[in-house]
Structures are given as structure tokens and as C-alpha cells.
Design a protein around this nucleic acid. Structure first.
Lengths: 225, 225
DNA sequence: GACCTGATTTCGAGTCGTCAAAAAGGATAG
DNA sequence: CTATCCTTTTTGACGACTCGAAATCAGGTC
């Protein structure tokens, strides 16, 4: 059985691969994402390559093998199902479930995960709108525009929030931008680097570009959240 | 923060202390209970003594300090609340929750435990009838007779099952002896070392003494399970 | 082509938890 | 009081994971 450290490495690498499809993931990125030193990553990555979980190109980076990708996807599935479970059943606030799930994803058996999945009705996305991989390991990533790219003046529905930090999530909640909310982008200011939103409840909200880019939206018609 | 290994050592020692109140817990017993070699226990126990979690008498055994007892009790509280949660909310079979909880007890935060406790209505006992320690660390151990000691011919209610192994629990379930069931001990055979029971539903069941000693009962009046 | 600069690798070291096997201690029967 | 047996301790070692610092590499600059 893989240790929880191994699971963490693979999960982080999978996430980095998602962010830049096709590219090798460089050591530094893994180190930053895990909060360890680059030397540690080099050592670990060699071991993972020896186990056949990823392929390692010295000085270039790393790419998951099918075996590694499968394992990583299962960890991600556990993580996201646990997040949703903690919100919907246990009643935690969505801003705190990410950290909890970080621990639990390594402790929960497949038995329990399947029960949770059933209990929740085989959900497609977690509380942040991130897709939940299928038991077979398939991830349905949708290609959604963010608040910097979506059309102006049209109603859109928040589908996904691309930052799990408790702080950002609390801001999102305060501003009424949780997944499912409907709003429209009134204007963008190129110089000030801000966007101005009007929410369904009439509130006006401004966001900087960094924040706006993290809010992904879809057409408001069919509510898939 | 204590590692999960430390938590396991302390929890096991607490359980052994419960079984023989007042006595020092010998190394061999800890080693057997944890499935490690005696040498490992000696080394670990010295470290725990240095941390002030227990006092160590070479060649005699070990006893938890107040600090160690408190920590161990909290682990036990997490363990038993998780067991009950898995049965009542997640819907697992009671014969499988012990193993699951063994992992989860180290991964669940205090936040989540308190939510679970609330959700379950501050329960007093877990699915096996073992008492759940209070948040303050108080354990309400009741002194109950087992099927070898309770009066003959009188109705009694199963209160607690003193063996968590999935195999034994499945036998208990098959025989209709889960906590809460009412039955009476019809007779005991000293030579054959068996007891004969009559269940409330009319079924007759025989148990060997080893098994009978693990079923603890109370008067059937107020159902405290 | 020589030189920087930033990323990566190597190296030596340390912690934690574990084992196997040898040595030592303690208890008890004679 | 001693021989024996069981328990405990000691010792040396290992695997997994980590760090810090020195050495090395790759890619762009001039």
C-alpha cells in the first residue's frame, strides 16, 4: 500500500498536470506545492519513478504514468467526496473542509467512500465546484470561462472556485459568489485591474483580477452545481 | 502534536489499565496488543516517559500519567464516536467499524468530532456498548455482570460486547445478541463449559464460556443502550 | 563563446518507528 | 542457593522522509 506521503506527491503532481496539460511538472513546483525543499522532491521522485508511478526526466520534470495517474485520481476522488460529505452531512463550513479532507483522504477506506458516494447520490462536483472523479478514475473537467473572460452584461452562474484557501473562501461567501449564485459582469477596468459585478440580489461587488480569474462561471440555465 | 503512533500506544495502554485496574502494564502486553516486538515497546516507552506521558518502571511495566491518560482518553473518545457515526449515519455494519475507526481516529479534527457528537445527540455508548468518554475526558465505566455471572432464569438485556473482532461480532449478530436484545440464561453446564440462552424471540442459543464471558448484561428495565 | 542566474541535484545528516538477535534480569522450583 | 525459563533490555541495523548547504546544470545574455 502506498504511504500517505506517496499519495500526497501523486495528487499534487496530478493537480499541477491539470493546470498545464501536456507539460512536464518541474521539481520546484512540486516542492512549493507540498511545502518541502527541492532536494527532498528529487529524492522522492526518483523513488516514485522506480515504483513505476511516474517518469522522471532529470532537470526537466516529471509526468505521471497510467498507474500513477490512477492512484492520484483515486486520492482526488476521496478528497472531493469527503469535502462534500463534510459540508452536506456533517455540517461543516465549506471554508474549513479542505484542510480536514487533506487528512481524511488517507484514512478512509474504499468501503466508506463508496457508501458516502451513494449517500450523496453520486455527485458530480464538490463544494468548490471541482469535479469528482468516477470510481473508474475518469475526471470530467469542464472548460469554463472566468469572470475576466465571460461576456459583459449577461447573467452567469458561478460554477467553480479555483482557490481552496479558507481565507479566499470566506471572501467568496461574504460576497455572495458561492457556486450556484447568479450574477452579471457589469464592467471591467483594464487600468485599475478590477471587475464590477451585480449579483442577483442586487448587490454590487468589485474584485481584483487575481480574484476574478479564480471564479469560473457557466450559463445560468441548467443548474449543474 | 503527538504522532498517530504515540496515540496508539497510549490508547492501548489505557485499555490495558482498564482491564487490570491498579496494576502496571507490562511490556509484553503492550507489544502483543500493538503487534510489535518487545524491544520496540521498550524503546518507545522510554520516549513516552521522557515526554511525561507515562511513568516507566524498568522490568515491571508502565502507568499513564495524568497527561498521558488525558490524551489517551481523547483518542478513545474519537474512536468510539466514529464507530457510532459510521453505523448510524454512514450505514456501515457494526462488525466492520472498528477497523475503520482505528484509522480515522488519528485523522479527524476536534471540530469534526464535536459536530459528530452533536449530530448523534451526545451518545453515552458506542455500537458495542463501550462507554464514550466525555469531552472533559471522563469515562463512565459501568460494572456489569456477564452471562456467566448473571442470575439464571431472569430476563436480562445485552449491554456490551467485549470483543471487537469482526468475526466475533458477526457471531453475536447471527445469534441475536446485539446490545439491546433481551434474553434469559436458562442453564449453565460446568463440565461442558457452556451456557444455554433463550432469546426474546424464542430462539435457543448455546455459547462456550469464553464467548459467554464477553457478553455483558444489565437489568432489562431502562434501556440505556 | 564566456558568463550569470535560477533551478536542480548531490551529499551528509537527522528523526521516527521498526526488527532480529544477543545479553541480562527476575521469579520460581527444586 | 542454583538451574531454568520467561520477560525485558540492549545493540546494531534498516526504511521512509526530511533538511541544509554545496555542487552542478540549463538557458539566456552580452
Amino acid at each position: 500500500m502506498p504511504t500517505s506521503t506517496v499519495e500526497d506527491y501523486l495528487k499534487r503532481i496530478l493537480l499541477e498536470e491539470h493546470r498545464q496539460p501536456g507539460a512536464l511538472v518541474p521539481m520546484g513546483q512540486i516542492a512549493a506545492s507540498l511545502g518541502v525543499t527541492p532536494g527532498t522532491v528529487t529524492a522522492m521522485v526518483k523513488a516514485l519513478a522506480d515504483s513505476g508511478l511516474l517518469s522522471y526526466e532529470p532537470y526537466s520534470g516529471v509526468r505521471l504514468t497510467p498507474a500513477g495517474r490512477e492512484l492520484a485520481t483515486h486520492v482526488l476522488r476521496r478528497h472531493r467526496l469527503i469535502e462534500l460529505f463534510l459540508v452536506q452531512v456533517v455540517g461543516l463550513d465549506w471554508s474549513e473542509v479542505h484542510g480536514e479532507a487533506e487528512q481524511l483522504e488517507h484514512a478512509v477506506s474504499e468501503r466508506v467512500i463508496e457508501r458516502i458516494d451513494e449517500l450523496l447520490g453520486h455527485p458530480a462536483v464538490d463544494p468548490h465546484g471541482d469535479p469528482i472523479p468516477s470510481p473508474a478514475g475518469h475526471v470530467h473537467e469542464r472548460d469554463l470561462p472566468n469572470l475576466l473572460l465571460c461576456p459583459l452584461g449577461e447573467p452567469v452562474r458561478v460554477a467553480r472556485v479555483g482557490d481552496q484557501s479558507a481565507e479566499f473562501l470566506r471572501l467568496v461567501e461574504r460576497s455572495g459568489l458561492v457556486p450556484g449564485s447568479v450574477l452579471s459582469v457589469e464592467s471591467r477596468d483594464e487600468t485599475a485591474e478590477t471587475v464590477h459585478l451585480r449579483l442577483a440580489d442586487g448587490r454590487d461587488v468589485s474584485l481584483g483580477w487575481r480574484a476574478a480569474a479564480k471564479i469560473l462561471v457557466q450559463s445560468p440555465g441548467p443548474n449543474e452545481t
